[in-house]
Design a protein around this nucleic acid. Structure first.
Lengths: 136, 136
DNA sequence: CTTTGTTGTTGCATTTTGCAAGGACAAATA
DNA sequence: TATTTGTCCTTGCAAAATGCAACAACAAAG
């Protein structure tokens, strides 16, 4: 990060992922097991290809996602979370909880109900699971 | 919110405050006791006046901020958090913690150190304090 | 009755986004 | 070997958002 607006940690966080798309990619990797460009493209929010490439590059440069060539297909890349990326979990969970609480059209599904019941347990559980998947 | 991209709560949250500025205004109200247009303008990130007006309007329409005429100055507006706005506290705290952890140029000040020591205690404490300030 | 403070608006250049089309390359298939 | 399919990424262009500077409306203060 070069052009930071201030030394406020909230501002610095927003400098990196303060847009409408970055955290949706993180969500896909973190909670939906998606790992590739084509899988991200299929998400219901319909991200444009140029935006997707741009965000993947930023997230890689920021060391939030790690990019590796697929072992089964040399023209395919596999994205995975770094420790830094996995540490975004609490933010994602809190946003999920807030969004579900204040949007009637956002039904709580399995994970949403777990969060409502015991948020910190969900975070602890999922962060354990994510630890096994770090690359770099 | 009309043009939601999907019924995912994370996506719906980002539809509302997924940009580089909205949460900085929230931060100013929530953690720095700022309440007015002119105070928001003074923040170190130097938000432009048209962006500030636009975001204040959105946050008011979304019922995150409440706007009231100042009792001492009829041409001045006082912004305060609603319950919905105060419920953004965990997100703000988590972003603060993540930003401080991964930015060497973001020194943890008093609040940052408290968060590192016992995050949930800070959230509980601050949400109690915010409850006393709700409008509408 | 002029000055100051506060909350905006407007115009315009720059940047970012959205959308459609297509290109490069490897793997799979005929 | 030739063709098709899948994957990742680029390009061009219109639309929208942002940044910046100037200014307008209005009330309070002196």
């Amino acid at each position: 990060m070069q052009n930071t607006r201030s030394d406020c940690p909230i501002s610095c966080s927003l400098d990196v992922f303060g847009d409408k798309w970055s955290l949706l990619i993180i969500r896909d990797v973190m909670l939906r097991g998606k790992v590739s460009y084509s899988e991200f493209l299929k998400s219901e929010e319909k991200i444009a290809t140029n935006i997707l490439v741009n965000r993947l590059n930023i997230l890689e440069v920021e060391n939030i996602l790690s990019k590796q060539v697929s072992t089964t297909n040399k023209s395919k890349f596999i994205y995975s979370l770094t420790q830094k990326g996995a540490d975004l979990l609490p933010i994602v969970i809190e946003m999920m909880d807030w969004g579900a609480k204040y949007n009637a059209n956002c039904p709580r599904r399995e994970l949403g109900k777990k969060i409502k019941k015991d948020k910190s347990a969900v975070i602890k559980e999922l962060s354990q699971a994510l630890k096994k998947q770090f690359k770099n």
